[in-house]
Every structure is written in C-alpha cells, then in structure tokens.
Write a protein that binds this DNA or RNA. Structure first.
Length: 437
RNA sequence: GUGAGUAUAGCGUAGCUGGUUAACGCGCCAGUUUGUGGCACUGGAGACCCUGGGUUCGAAUCCCAGUACUCACCCCA
C-alpha cells in the first residue's frame, strides 16, 4: 500500500515527550502564577465567526488570518487572545464582576511565513484586567509585579522590565506635527536596539521626517539615566503638549507604584524606546528582557488600552494586560540550552509483572496512584530484559518486579534504577513510598 | 507578499568531477546473559536517494518544473 508522508506543517511545533514534559511544566508555572494573583480562567473557541474576529482588524492582521468556509459559514482561527476576550466581555458583560481579571493560555494562529522562533500556531499566555467605564492607573503598576514573579518562577534572576508610556511618544509626535506618521515612527524607534542609531535616522528620513524633527526624536529617545532621572528630564524638556504631559505624569505614577508592589529597583526601568509593534496600546507599555540573553527579544510584553470592546459594545471597557509567547520562548530557551528537556517519563514507578495473574500488580499500582505516586504497569508480554530496558530508556526511577514468589510472600523488591540497589519491602503502597524520594 | 538555500533508512549525516551491492553514527530487533536495565562484543532488519520530466549507453549525482522544508526581509509572540 502506498503510504502517506507523515509530515507536520511548517510553523507548527510538535515536541518529543521529554520536550513536551518541560513545555508543560513551563505552562503550568505560568498558570499557577496567574492564579496566585487572582486571575480567573477563561477558554474561548479557537474557531470563531470571521465577522467577530475581523471586527477591528485591518492590514497585516487580516492578511494573516486563517479564514475558511464551512457550508455558508464564514469562519476564522483566532489571531490572538485579546479579540476573543473583547467579544467575551461584551457578550457576558452582565454576568461578570468588574474589574474583570482573567487569564487565558491557548493557541493562536497566524498564516505568515514561518521562520526561526516564529510559528503559525503558538501559545499565548495572557492576563488582562478590564474595568467597567474606567480602570485605575494602579493596575498598570501591578502588571510589572506579576511579570517579576513570573520570570522568577520560570527560573531567571537577571532580567529587566522596561516600562514606557505611549502618550509620551504620541504627544511628542503631535508636537512635531507627525501624528499621522506616529505608527510608522514608533515601529522605527522600536527597532533601535536591533538596527542601531544611524539606521533609525535613515529610516526616519525615508518617512519624510524633517531633519530637525529627527534630531528632536533622537535627542528624546537617547535620554539616559536612572528611572527617576529620566522622569525628571522628561518633565524639564519644556514640551507643552497635553498628551505628552499626561503621559509623563502617568509614567511617574506607575513607576512609583511599581516600587510599592515590591519589584526590586534592578528589575525595572523606564525605557523611552519601548514602543511595541501593536498599535492598540494607548498608555503604559511593558517589555521584559533577560539580560544575559538580549537576543531573545522581549519575553513578556503588554500594555494599557483605552477601550477593549468598542467594536462589540458601546460600553467603555479600558484594560491593561500582558502576554507571554510561550511557544517562542520555549523554542529559544531550548535552542540556547538555557533549559534542558531531561525527564523522559512522568512515572515514578514501573511495575513489572512476571506472572499470568495481573491482579496483584494492578492492585498495587492502584494503591500507589491513590497516594499520588505516578505508577505504570508494564503490560506487554516481553522478556524481563526488555521490560527493564524500557524502564531504563524512559529513566523511570524505580522498578518493582512482581512474580508468583512475591505474591506468595507479600513482599516485593523495590529497585532504584539509578543506583541499582534493591530493597525488600512489604507489598504495601504506604511502605513503598517511604523508600522512594 | 519578496529573496536565498536545502531535500539520501525512524533520526543525524556521507556519497554529488555521472559507472552498476548507496556508506557511517545513533536508534530498532536478536544473541552472548531463559527473574534484572545501563557497558561491551556478534549478527540482523530497515532507503522506489521528495515528485514529474529531460540529457546520457548509464543519474542519488547534471538540467528544467513542481512540491515541501529551512533561513532572511516584512510583520510579530
């Protein structure tokens, strides 16, 4: 029979068991951290009506969205988790308590060309706080504290959460009469670290920004110093634009409150070049960098938006949120050998029966599972040697052999696969647990 | 969407100045060791060399097309 080539589409991540175990651990760490801050779980469909998902879309988003017909229905795969959240909040407005704090961890889809660390299907891990009508600025200051806990929990100490406010840049552009160009200019500024100062100037020239305006922009983003020094310089720049001043005020307040939430000074800073690609942010924006691995780019980003669900409801729903691209993060950490997929099995014990009667082995396995020990029974009729080899290959730490002798004596030998030692123990789950680490 | 590269056992690769049994490592199976894995040795299975066409006495090897994948740009997580 002719076989179909077993293949996985470009841009779709598929892992081996040892990698998947590690991936799941990271996912669980993120979930636990989000829950510790009181965020509620949410799961929305991967497929939604194209009309819903494309309500506000345009340009790149629309081009990259997977869209298809099923019968007469015009459907699409979700592009991110924010749009489904907007729909959800608008739809369930009456049944939710505000401020609504939710987390969502799920796959999203983007039909673009895959490349290193860029996938067509990937996990996003989002949290957002949505206010009804308004949302106090202090929520913007809580986000960095959550990022701080999260990155710590993921095992990193040396990282910096960079904080900025879009109003500052937008106000600056307004003052320079570059409002129409602001999105393009922001994109260019965002590339500063990647392409360098001179290239940024070149790019700005291409956007027809005038010489003295370029100078003003460059002078601005090159403001140096500690967070407090930067804030002071921003205030003393003599820019009278209202949006700008509001931005500086907000940023100052957020920075002060981030301290209140206990984020150590070395883990956050004002960075005026953080602009984020997404243009729906309207205030505070965050990016997080691992200082020893700057090449990873931001590992956790987010920001404040004025009106989450304007395309679905007249209710004004401002929010602030952050997102981790787990698939990319995992891929890159793995590639750089920062994390290692070592566990090949999640079993603590493999029970190897060498008797026709499986009653006792299964009974023991059930008892062990009841007290929380991951237990697997080898259920194939192979030679004993092959059964041990299986435990060895999967690096299952303990093996129990149960044959007729053991059943008769009600004693088993618990073998530590790493040391090779065997210990005779009563055939009793509670007893056995005492000898495993 | 634009540009470049790659395609050979399950995996990673060699072979690519065309020459008849396509090689190596890992993995897999079996044995040395019939209630004990790792190590070692011995043996074995496994490949329409991406697909289609062309050049040639002869193609994994050269040419063309298609497809897939990878990388970069764009954009982004």
């Amino acid at each position: 029979m002719e076989k179909v080539q077993p293949r996985t589409l470009s841009g779709f991540m598929e892992l081996l068991p040892n990698e998947q175990i590690l991936f799941n651990q990271m996912k669980e760490t993120i979930q636990k951290t989000y829950e510790r801050y009181g965020f509620l779980p949410l799961d929305t469909p991967i497929i939604e009506s194209a009309e819903v998902l494309l309500a506000k879309a345009g340009g790149e988003t629309e081009k990259q969205m997977y869209r298809f017909k099923k019968g007469d229905a015009d459907l699409a795969l979700r592009f991110d988790l924010t749009v489904p959240l907007a729909k959800y909040v608008a739809k369930n407005y009456g049944n939710l308590s505000f401020p609504f704090r939710r987390y969502q961890i799920g796959k999203v889809y983007r039909g673009e060309r895959a490349q290193k660390g860029r996938y067509r299907e990937f996990y996003q891990c989002d949290i957002d706080v949505i206010g009804d009508g308004e949302l106090d600025l202090i929520n913007d200051a809580e986000m960095p504290s959550i990022i701080y806990s999260l990155i710590k929990e993921l095992g990193f100490d040396d990282f910096t959460i960079k904080i900025n406010n879009r109003k500052i840049l937008n106000g600056l552009f307004e003052g320079l009469n570059q409002k129409e160009n602001s999105t393009e200019i922001l994109r260019v500024i965002d590339k500063l670290e990647k392409i360098g100062k001179d290239a940024v100037v070149e790019e700005l020239k291409k956007l027809d920004v005038k010489e003295e305006q370029i100078k003003a922009i460059m002078d601005f983003i090159e403001i140096e110093g500690t967070s407090n020094e930067k804030l002071e310089k921003l205030e003393n720049l003599g820019i009278n634009n209202e949006t700008y001043q509001k931005g500086v005020e907000e940023l100052k307040s957020v920075i002060n409150n981030v301290r209140l939430f206990g984020v150590p000074e070395e883990n956050f800073q004002v960075d005026l070049t953080i602009a984020r690609g997404l243009d729906y942010y309207t205030g505070t924006v965050y990016e997080t960098f691992l200082n020893n691995y700057r090449e990873l780019g931001s590992v956790c980003s987010g920001g404040r938006y004025e009106n989450l669900a304007e395309y679905y409801t007249d209710k004004k729903l401002p929010g602030v949120g952050i997102s981790i691209g787990l698939t990319r993060l995992f891929y890159k950490l793995n590639e750089l050998n920062i994390i290692k997929a070592e566990k090949k099995s999640i079993s603590d014990i493999l029970i190897i029966p060498i008797t026709e009667d499986l009653k006792e082995p299964i009974k023991l396995a059930t008892e062990l599972r009841k007290i929380g020990i991951n237990t697997e029974v080898y259920l194939n009729n192979k030679k004993l040697k092959a059964k041990f080899k299986y435990a060895d290959k999967l690096e299952i730490p303990y093996v129990i052999v149960i044959g007729d002798d053991e059943i008769k004596a009600k004693k088993i030998k618990l073998k530590n696969m790493k040391s090779g030692e065997e210990k005779e123990v009563n055939m009793d789950a509670e007893e056995i647990v005492k000898y495993i680490q």
